[in-house]
Design a protein around this nucleic acid. Structure first.
Lengths: 337, 337
DNA sequence: ACTTAAACTGAAACCGTTAACAAATATTTC
DNA sequence: GAAATATTTGTTAACGGTTTCAGTTTAAGT
């Protein structure tokens, strides 16, 4: 393996000069630099990052921590996230991936090991970890889950707005009897999405009917159960908004089980736009949560932070997008014309 | 940040002794070692991996490279893989994740940067990368995709056997008219699965009907199209084996479109057991490809390899598992009694 | 008690890089 | 053309560990 000293020898200069030349230090005369760069390229020189790290006290690695490796709900999550991150992470950083739940010693999470950290958070259980991060002083961003702490850089989707827009769309199609299957109690996203739901109904002067608010926990099962109870109502809704796609799939199965056809008899809207929402039958109309964009944006911000450590942390929203597929139909000859 | 020299100072020994004590070197007297370990713990000592790396010429990182970040078909893949890997990767290795297609310079993949590499391969396009790896001398394993090169450590599922078993099951339920939707031409997995399919039919002395062999490419669309053509046959099959779940989902949608109900009129078997196969309607009977196990096993083998570099490379198979759900029914009063 | 071997500890060099400081060379300035 | 200044390069010491080799104890043998 060839080192800067090897280069120095063939270039007839000191290794310091080589180091400077290769790092774009302006002290070096242009022609010297060019010569050294040429030689380095010829010799196929690759810097030793361990040595660099040691002296620079930088690790050249970014850690990606996501809630749980063992709780499989959110598969496309990770891929999308990694995709987004790699788009902006420059090549001499490497990205390590960890499950928050599988960290044995928080002590091993030190500034020396991570230049920065991305937390792809899905649950409140991550708070302890986030708190620890804060202690260490490692620059970090929390992605995906909205935090209340203004001291933390936080990139999330604009759930509330997105849901409102989707419901506006449904109402525009004539729906008046509209239900919601809520997410897990206590999650920020649950209340945000519910708010968006209510925003739209209220804006359209539609009544908020308690029977149409059903509990869920973001799991497929809970969607199934909630939909079952909705279908048992004496006056069932014509449109159901599910706070995520997993529950929408559960709800869909409840409809199959009850022999309800979609979107003929009932319309359904999901949230997230997971990979499979396009392959359900009928394909699910949903609100896309742009995980890749969130990750990309978050990474950009994190890098900015690394370079300028005392920039103020902000909370940033990225736009959701309504994906119209086929699970919502116009309600037939029933609108209040 | 505290170093071995700090520990040495408070312990009243040389930093050399500390280094040895902390690394389990048998030269150190037990009581000295105990004392040093206690002090290290008290001081919250964490070794500096950059320094260690530098002198040991080890990176303490394992790279996970997977085929394509941008081709979203196989999302649960990555999660399962990471899950499996973390189960066995000991804590002082860190795992970095990369898309093969986003590597700009192969030169950056050097033995100094990776102690070992896991290649989660899904396509032949990875061969160039695998070839490069071989050049570098970095110990590596190729997971998931069967290779012909006997010089490479390779962990894959036993596709052929698994498919045979699944078809045995279908035939046991009375099916005689059985079709296959094949995977992408040229892929090893395609031929393996097809072989398993034929193995079973032949073992049961069933004819191999050319019309029942349809082409696919592992994409959802291709499953849809293949199923459409199968349904147009004058004598359509009663059981269709799809070479992966994605195509099974496409096939399922074709059935919906044609008004065919499953499993009443037609039975379907998939392959992979992707996350969503349990949420289709009806839930898909499929063959589970144990990605987590493959990864786990592969990682174990890789680590073995790191510790004993000249162990012979092998090709290892891990067992698939038939997941019986509800897309296959017994064929009604039609068996050749 | 005295040598000799065994057990343990320490001094110093090294891994490949950057950086503070010193030195050399080139360029102005008068 | 010498002094002053600017530009470019080199010397040397870190960074935090491991390892070789030498040195010091301690235990064993006679």
């Amino acid at each position: 393996m060839i080192t800067i000293k090897d280069i120095a020898r063939v270039a007839g200069v000191s290794h310091t000069t080589v180091s400077r030349a290769l790092n774009g230090n302006p002290l070096i005369k242009k022609e010297t630099r060019d010569r050294i760069e040429r030689i380095a390229a010829e010799l196929n020189y690759i810097p030793n990052y361990s040595a660099k790290s040691l002296v620079m006290k930088k690790s050249y690695t970014i850690g990606l921590f996501f809630s749980s490796i063992d709780q499989g709900t959110s598969a496309s999550f990770l891929v999308d996230a990694i995709k987004g991150i790699h788009q902006v992470l420059d090549e001499n950083y490497s990205l390590t991936v960890h499950g928050i739940d599988s960290i044995r010693h928080y002590d091993a999470i030190t500034p020396r090991r991570f230049d920065g950290v991305l937390v792809m958070s899905q649950s409140e259980a991550d708070n302890a970890f986030i708190y620890h991060l804060k202690q260490t002083g490692i620059p970090f961003v929390v992605l995906n889950r909205q935090l209340d702490d203004p001291g933390i850089l936080n990139v999330v989707a604009n759930d509330r707005e997105g849901v409102r827009e989707a419901l506006d769309y449904g109402i525009g199609l004539g729906h008046r009897k509209i239900a919601i299957i809520e997410g897990r109690a206590g999650f920020k996203s649950t209340t945000e999405r519910k708010q968006g739901f209510m925003d739209s109904l209220i804006a359209h002067r539609l009544p908020l009917i308690p029977d149409y608010f059903t509990a869920g926990d973001y799991g497929v099962e809970s969607g199934y159960n909630a939909m079952m109870s909705l279908l048992s109502l004496s006056d069932p809704p014509t449109l159901v908004f599910c706070s995520n796609d997993d529950m929408a799939i559960g709800a869909l199965n409840a409809c199959y089980a009850r022999g309800i056809t979609l979107p003929g008899q009932l319309s359904l809207i999901g949230f997230d736009d997971i990979l499979f929402s396009q392959y359900t039958y009928p394909p699910l109309t949903t609100i896309r949560k742009p995980i890749a964009d969130i990750s990309k944006f978050g990474t950009t911000k994190l890098i900015e932070r690394l370079e300028q450590p005392d920039s103020a942390p902000e909370q940033l929203f990225v736009q959701t997008e309504l994906i119209v597929r086929q699970s919502v139909a116009a309600v037939k000859n029933e609108g209040q014309l």
